[in-house]
């Protein structure tokens, strides 16, 4: 059976400068295949600037690959006709990093839910539209009366991001690509958003590409993991495999820099995996998050240490 979404040796180069001569490689030789059979969660981990967002935008057809192709049900995204493009959008949706920028400040939050309902004819009649919106909001744990009819700046980041999840959910997609969905949200509210994403997968059978710079949440939520470093995939595989026996120095560094007991007591962590979001010790995610966000040292400084570690292991 043809996979739902497939990236085939995709490379993206941005040109900039006055004469377009300055080139930035944002993603190099990236391949990925997501099937339709069983809903899965794939985490994509990498530091800032490693090409994660570029990958997401390529997969969503918001950016065109410089080399290679992205296929939706075997068809190149660039050659989709109107009907196929509709089907593509219906099947593949996204949640972006910045929950404030995702809303047009000119409209009430209802707008982001109304547009897909109208554009895709999701509601059989007018009255059903409202019911549909309320249903989607409830599914992500929001109370419709407290959300609908408000402007984006009247809601918290967590609420806004959950509305974005509800928006994706409305379309009943087969895949949601979530680009760092919690990195711009208060630590205390992250759990709610991650929880609703996890629900999409567990309760609604939607596959998830979860992009993050935070290995801990990646480990907790995902089945498979892809590690991006300097715009290339340096490691990919089942999450247990990668965390237990990391091959690439960067991955080893990532894992070694997790300061919490979870690293050694991986058994304990495993027990928590499905319930992680509701645990009070989630505050720890914040501390990990900070560790991951400190500006990455230059590679030359970092390599020796990680290589040494590699030898010891």
């Amino acid at each position: 059976m043809t996979p739902l979404l497939q990236a085939h040796q995709v490379t993206k180069v941005f040109r900039s400068g006055m004469t377009q001569r300055k080139q930035t490689v944002a993603l190099r030789d990236f391949s990925l295949s997501i099937g339709t059979d069983a809903p899965s969660i794939i985490a994509v981990v990498g530091e800032s600037g490693s090409g994660k967002s570029t990958m997401a935008r390529l997969l969503l057809g918001l950016e065109r690959p410089t080399v290679g192709e992205v296929l939706y049900a075997g068809e190149d995204l660039r050659t989709l006709n109107r009907a196929r493009r509709r089907a593509f959008l219906n099947d593949i949706q996204a949640v972006f990093q910045d929950p404030f920028a995702s809303f047009n400040p000119f409209y009430k939050v209802d707008h982001v839910l109304e547009v897909p309902i109208n554009k895709f004819g999701l509601a059989p009649e007018r009255g059903a539209s409202r019911a549909l919106m309320e249903e989607a909001l409830q599914a992500v744990g929001l109370r419709p009366p407290e959300t609908l009819g408000r402007y984006p700046h009247q809601l918290s980041g967590g609420q806004r991001q959950r509305i974005m999840v509800a928006r994706a959910l409305l379309m009943q997609p087969k895949l949601i690509i979530a680009d760092e969905p919690v990195s711009m949200i208060d630590a205390s509210l992250r759990a709610t958003v991650l929880d609703s994403l996890r629900q999409c997968n567990e309760d609604f059978g939607i596959s998830l590409i979860y992009i993050t710079h935070d290995l801990t949440t990646a480990y907790q939520i995902s089945h498979d993991i892809i590690v991006l470093y300097a715009c290339s995939v340096v490691e990919a595989g089942a999450v247990e495999q990668v965390v237990k026996r990391p091959q690439h120095p960067y991955t080893q560094l990532l894992i070694s820099s997790i300061p919490c007991p979870t690293r050694t007591a991986s058994g304990r962590m495993k027990r928590h995996r499905l319930k992680w979001a509701r645990r009070p010790d989630l505050g720890r995610v914040a501390c990990l998050h900070r560790a991951a966000r400190t500006p990455s040292p230059p590679v030359s400084k970092r390599r020796p240490r990680s290589f040494r570690r590699g030898r010891i292991n």
């Binding site: 941005f14 040109r15 400068g17």
Partner: peptide
């Protein structure tokens, strides 16, 4: 900066 348009 010199700004280049389009591309996005």
């Amino acid at each position: 900066r010199y700004q280049t348009a389009g591309g996005g």
